[in-house]
Simulated assay, not measured.
Amino acid sequence: MIRLFVFTCLVALSLSGKAQSEDEAILKPIRNLFEAMTLCDSTLAASCFTADAMLHGVKTNENGQASLKSFPASKFISIIGKPKAEKWHEPIWDIQIQQDDQLASVWVEYAFYLGNTFSHCGVDSFQLIQTANGWKIFALADTRRTEDCEVPQAIRKRYEAN
């Protein structure tokens, strides 16, 4: 009976480790993208996306209705590569990952900082595909707002000017 219990625990830990490992593999291009944004590294940013990836921004217009702006990731990548007066920081939290086979969806809350100044917050929704070269982002949609932002205190302490 004890052997069965130990075996069951070991299998559960092994499966948990595999799931954690897969989650980290899925998150790798997302984390690399945010690092690329901070470093102004367009090469690292490009490695996170498929060649035909698209970005979509959802905002509420002055009439209170949703508006959508879409553009190729290549445009964003070129913007990332340009030197900036202040570093871009986009810390994330409340990470939710769903995966089926070679498709993954990641939903995160974020705050965006220009240097130590808060700019906006929202949600990033990533769609990823597993390729021979690892997980790649093929679509990214986000929301953006400047009010009703509940940024965790630890993030505020790290990024906001005192």
Rank of each mutant, 00 (worst) to 15 (best):
L4N: 13
L4H: 13
F5G: 00
F5Q: 15
F7W: 10
F7N: 08
T8L: 13
C9N: 08
C9I: 11
V11M: 09
V11G: 07
A12M: 13
S14R: 09
S14Y: 08
L15M: 05
L15I: 04
G17V: 02
K18A: 06
A19I: 13
Q20D: 15
S21T: 14
S21C: 04
E22D: 11
E24H: 14
I26N: 04
L27W: 02
K28Q: 08
R31S: 09
N32V: 00
N32H: 14
L33M: 15
F34Y: 14
F34L: 13
E35R: 14
A36T: 04
T38V: 02
T38E: 01
T38D: 01
T43N: 07
A46M: 03
F49E: 10
T50M: 12
A53I: 09
L55F: 00
L55I: 02
H56D: 07
H56A: 11
V58D: 02
K59T: 14
N63G: 03
G64D: 09
S67A: 05
S67R: 10
L68W: 06
K69W: 03
S70L: 07
A73Q: 06
F76Y: 15
I77N: 07
K84W: 02
A85E: 15
A85T: 15
W88Y: 00
W88A: 02
W88M: 01
E90R: 05
E90T: 03
E90D: 10
I97L: 09
Q98T: 11
Q98P: 01
Q99G: 08
Q99I: 03
Q99Y: 00
D100G: 09
D101T: 08
L103R: 14
S105M: 06
V106Q: 07
Y110F: 11
A111Q: 10
L114Q: 15
G115H: 09
N116P: 03
F126N: 02
F126P: 08
I129S: 10
I129F: 05
Q130R: 15
Q130Y: 00
T131Q: 03
A132F: 06
G134C: 12
W135M: 01
W135T: 00
K136I: 05
F138P: 04
A139Q: 08
A139M: 09
A139H: 13
D142T: 09
R144S: 12
R144A: 10
R144D: 04
R144Y: 08
R144Q: 09
R145H: 05
R145A: 00
T146G: 09
E147P: 04
E150W: 02
E150A: 05
V151P: 01
I155R: 01
R156H: 02
Y159I: 03
E160N: 05
E160Q: 14
E160W: 03
A161L: 13
A161S: 12
N162Y: 11
